[in-house]
Amino acid sequence: MSLSTDDVQKVARLARLAMNDDEIEAARSQLSGIFQLIEEMQAVDTSGIEPMSHAQDLTQRLREDRVTEPDQRELFQSIAPQVSSGLYLVPQVIE
């Protein structure tokens, strides 16, 4: 399977990446290479094998439900581009 320019443009839009035509073409060819690799792997017979969802065969450790984090708003907001009345400010979002 090889990707079309449209496919790449769509993925770029979803990932909020601004790409020019040259970059789109370069990405298209690289991504198509990855798809070829996937196709090769698809040929392996995996019937009867449970899919893994993580590279490590371990399970999640759980944390006790306790509040451990103090208020560090001042510290965090000291590196924010813009804040007002405790809020982080971003360019206006209109639904």
């Binding site: 509040v67 451990t68 984090e69 560090q72 708003r73 405790g86």
Partner: peptide, 25 residues
């Protein structure tokens, strides 16, 4: 009493971002 993936408080009605720890932000 704490968040699903961090130890910040979930209490309702706090001053903005006073319960937003490093994981929350």
């Amino acid at each position: 009493c704490s968040k699903i993936f961090s130890g910040a408080s979930t209490a309702y009605g706090a001053e903005p971002n006073t319960q937003a720890d490093a994981v929350s932000i």
